[in-house]
Every structure is written in C-alpha cells, then in structure tokens.
Nucleic acid binder design. Structure first.
Length: 235
DNA sequence: TCGTGATCATCT
DNA sequence: AGATGATCACGA
C-alpha cells in the first residue's frame, strides 16, 4: 500500500464489538473514499492491484500489519477476509485461506492445522469484484462475522484430511482444484516453475508450493448464514 | 524465500 | 460463463 504522505493507520480495535462497528461503518463506501480517508494512493494498472483492497480494508479496520501467520486481529482471535462479490451478490472468486507447509505436510494434524486456526473466527467483508466496477468505484458491503458451525467444520475437516493426506503421502503432484467438496488445493507461487521441499512418491523432493482455497459455493452459503450440503452417505 | 493479500488469463 | 491454474505486489 503506497502512502501519499503522512502514515495514517487506525488504532487496533479493543473489542469484537468495536471491530464490528467499524466494519459496519465501511458498508456503502467506495475504495476511493476509503483510500482517500487513509491517505493512500490507488494503483493505476488493475493487474497490479491484486491484494490492494484486502490490505486497504485491513488498514481501515486497524488490523495488525505484523500479524504474519497469526490472525489479523491477534488479541481478538479474528481473521479478516475481503471477498469479491459479483452483480448478484455471490462470491466472484474462490477465497485463498492459507499456504500449505509442504515440508511438514505429513506431520500436521487437523486440530492444530493452519487451515483450522485461520477459519476459527472470520470477519468477512464483501467488496464489489474487479469485474463489476473499476477499482476506485468498487463498493464495500456489510460485514459478516462467522464461525464454522458443526456441519461446516465437518466438511472442512473431511476435505482437509483427504487433501492433506494425499500431500503428506507424496501425491500432492496429482492433486487438482477439482478435488474437495468445500476446499480446493491450488498452486500458490509467483511462478508455475517454483519449487519447495515437500513429500514426493519416493521421499522428500522439490515440489510445487500449494495453498488451500474455499470454493465459491461454500463462501456463498456461509455469507448467508446457511451452509447445507447433502451428505454423501444419506442422512 | 516464504507467507500474506488476492485477481488475472486461459481453457473447458 | 465458470472454474482452474498462473500470476502480481508487499513485508519480515
């Protein structure tokens, strides 16, 4: 995020309620309005604007810029995610959740997994997608504070076990985004030829870095407070 | 270099 | 059109 001159950053919210109120206050505002209020200049080429809106909203809400792998609001245990919305109000893209630690993929457990930690408590902020309006005109919508319910957590764990199991067993190279009911595994790298140490069929080898994404259908449902899938083995 | 923030560009 | 695989920017 480029700052035009003095650095402007909101103080961190001291309570969940304060965070919600701030997020509600962004509803209806445009990217240009928020950027101007924070004294941030807009990127000109859309191709170079990936991630801009997410970082802008982080700054507007007082997220900890040094959080790293921790939640955006460490004291509140809340993760912030902006979600691009199409003209019908549905997610326009899948949602990146976290990268996969390839080197330790065979040792990770669901309960302490990066993915579960990140999705424990999420503040979703809908924003008009890049294909709906030009960057400055993209409007922010009403936030949704979400925790996975029992059914959602079951779906997430089931996919995670399948996908992480495959990666840990050295079959990560055979995975595509078609696997998974609510999750996807997709490349997460600057270039398709990047490699990092990970499990291979015959032991550790250089592998394509992967990340977890939420399918649009899952995100769409949770934004409306209802995720209900038919169970694969009958009710 | 890796992880965070995502959207782009192409193929089906 | 929608989904998949590829790509862009930034910070520690």
């Amino acid at each position: 995020l480029r700052k035009a001159s003095p650095v402007v950053r909101r103080p961190k919210p001291l309570s969940l309620r304060e965070l919600e109120i701030r997020a509600e206050a962004l509803a209806g505002r445009s990217v240009a309005e928020v950027a101007r209020a924070l004294d941030v200049s807009l990127p000109h080429e859309p191709k170079r604007a990936k991630g801009f809106v997410g970082m802008l909203v982080e700054q507007a809400l007082g997220a900890d810029p040094k959080a790293g792998e921790d939640p955006d609001f460490p004291e509140l245990g809340v993760e912030l995610k902006t979600v691009p919305i199409d003209k019908n109000g549905a997610p326009a893209e899948s949602t990146f959740v976290c990268s996969i630690a390839m080197a330790h993929a065979d040792q990770e457990e669901w309960t302490s997994s990066r993915l579960r930690q990140r999705l424990q408590h999420v503040l979703w902020v809908p924003v008009e997608a890049a294909k709906v309006s030009e960057l400055p005109l993209r409007r922010i919508g009403r936030p949704v504070l979400w925790r996975p319910d029992v059914e959602q957590e079951r779906l997430l764990e089931s996919d995670w076990q399948d996908l992480m199991g495959a990666i840990g067993a050295g079959r990560g190279g055979t995975l595509t985004a078609r696997e998974g009911v609510v999750l996807q595994v997709r490349p997460k790298a600057a270039r398709a030829d990047e490699r990092t140490l990970g499990p291979g069929p015959d032991g550790p080898q250089q592998t394509l870095p992967l990340g977890f994404y939420l399918r649009q259908s899952f995100t769409a449902a949770l934004l409306h407070g209802r995720v209900h899938y038919p169970t694969a083995h009958g009710c």
